[in-house]
Amino acid sequence: MQTLGNFKLPNFFNYPPYFTLQPVRDTREKQVQLWKELILDYCRTQKIFVIALDEEFPLFSNPVIESIAGSLNHEARQAFLSALVSEGRAEWMHKGHRKCLILWHRIQDWADSIVQFVKDNGLEDTVMTVEEIRSGVESRGTELHGIDRTILMRALKLLENKGKLVIFKGSSADDEGIKFSL
């Protein structure tokens, strides 16, 4: 089985037609389904949060295949990512559909793990910065470590709306503080 780093690729990855968006509806649905699972799996294990459509992405080409660079064309990439977007497992970051936020955990799930993280570390009623959550000592070894900032902010906003914390401008311009009140 072919691997990409430590990631085991599924067998269909070596089958050339899977790199061409299929014209027949039923076949295409199956194809899109397989790609969706692959993209989510890969991003989860590799901790990838953003896929840019026009940039190199390891999954979108297979050097083993003797196709034109064995790679997905723009239309196919967009189709697979759009399918994820329509399922709430991804979001376009701009109107131009050039970058896509991959939500292998939904925002709600991220919010839940933040709450869990706060409880595990006894941080209720304390103040942290956003950066501390992303790269602080406390979050090391948890899924929150290294989380994409956009996703983290979305999850924090969700919790703020529920009254579980307050986000406020911190002393430095580019970092915000969080006051938990669980």
Partner: peptide, 25 residues
Amino acid sequence: EGLAMIDEGHRDGKCHYWFPCISSI
């Protein structure tokens, strides 16, 4: 569903018709 799938990306510029029922992939 269809018995064939196409690969339009091959270097030779031709459309390849693949048949999953005969290749062990």
